[in-house]
Design a protein around this nucleic acid. Structure first.
Lengths: 225, 225
DNA sequence: GCAAAAGTGTTTGGGATACACCCATGC
DNA sequence: GCATGGGTGTATCCCAAACACTTTTGC
């Protein structure tokens, strides 16, 4: 480790891509920037990671502080996404950004306001930095996760109908699945159990409620889709 | 971005997991540490990433300097792996390490010596830090990549036999494949072309040489394996 | 009874797997 | 001619995909 100049580290930042499904669309959590650069633009919640704090912890602190969302309690699933060099990207100079992706449902945004909002992924405003690319990348990763893990559970209530389950897949993949094939396949994966509860919702036959056998993330035997 | 204390960034480091196949085994590039901590232990090549330098560039510089391997010229494939928080891990204090995985073949280690070597992945010495875990993680990622991309080409000469191709898969997955099924499947993927060259190697029928249609990394239509 | 969503089986095609023998060469 | 690795085909099974009607409920 021989270096002659004193070592100066790049700025370290963290950014969060937090997804939920609401009103039948996939949404991502955004905040409106209060300061330059990109003042007034929408951006992923993110901020500085100082020495002594893990990126995971910094993420929790920053998302709580900037968007009023608790990544521990509100998200059923979170994973590291990618680390972006922003040496050319950030007008303030060299920063390295560690990004995370999280998924939840029915997230209440404290201070929901014109400054913090979940917005539909397929209808985003102009975003600061290259956050649009990061969201695209996270969406791809999310689709991949749903094909070989039980990660979809993060978007669902503890008890859910098969139609809700299928709908989550359809929203995230933005395409339709055949109802009979979807059910046959998902049930064969042995990830969920039928309960004896029913979901009543309007003038039609009530639906059986199911639950995941395990709340932990697990890889599937056969990949889905 | 309101913070009251002056911002101090964690140390940023990069580490490289560089694989090659040699003598029928998967090997990883290691260097012997010249300084504390872990002086005298084998470790992944890595070092400090200062402000103004991308992680990718720092990796290139450090691997060249510490191990005499040129990640641009010697590696046919490189990708970012994961970013590790080492706040609890590194005796020197808080560092964040961005790791990369690369693959090549017939890599000449300049200064090959008792301080730099490719070592068999399934027979590693004690390693510094948690580098054994990082290598395990990289190996898993590598297997995943081979199932859905043409990344295996990074381990092969421009012209190669089907037996060499199959052998690369068998070494990386540490299991055997059926020769007829392997060939049928790989040829059906439409990734490689037969050439009119032959490979002669001893007292047996010579083998046809093949080449990849594209040297770029591409995803497969159907996943392999 | 009617509208609305839940629930349910069968057929077909293609890829995965299992498996054994002949071919071309160097010596 | 013999040892060595190269090269090839078929039968079976399982999963994916396509496809339409009956059931249960609220009003």
């Amino acid at each position: 480790m021989d270096y002659t100049k004193p070592y100066i580290a790049p700025t370290l930042t963290v950014d969060a891509v937090i997804f939920q499904i609401s009103n039948g669309v996939l949404e991502v959590l955004l905040v409106k920037r209060a300061n330059d650069p990109f003042k007034g633009s929408w951006a992923l919640p993110g901020g500085y990671n100082a020495v002594g704090e893990t990126t995971h912890h910094a993420l929790h602190r920053i998302v709580e502080q900037k968007a009023g969302v608790d990544t521990e309690k509100d998200l059923a699933y979170i994973e590291q996404l990618y680390t972006f060099d922003t040496v050319d990207r950030d007008p303030r100079g060299h920063a390295v950004s560690v990004t995370y992706m999280g998924c939840g449902r029915d997230i209440i945004v404290r201070d929901a306001s014109s400054h913090t909002a979940f917005m539909a992924v397929n209808n985003l405003p102009e975003l600061a930095y290259d956050h649009a690319n990061i969201i695209r990348y996270a969406h791809e990763r999310l689709k991949a996760k749903l094909t070989y893990t039980n990660a979809v559970s993060a978007f669902l209530a503890p008890r859910f109908t098969l139609t809700q389950l299928q709908s989550a897949y359809e929203i995230i993949f933005d395409r339709e699945f055949d109802k009979r094939n979807f059910r046959k396949k998902f049930l064969s994966l042995d990830l969920i159990d039928e309960t004896d509860e029913l979901w009543r919702d309007g003038a039609h036959r009530p639906a059986k409620l199911y639950k995941f056998k395990s709340s932990k993330l697990q890889a599937l035997e056969r990949s889905f889709d």
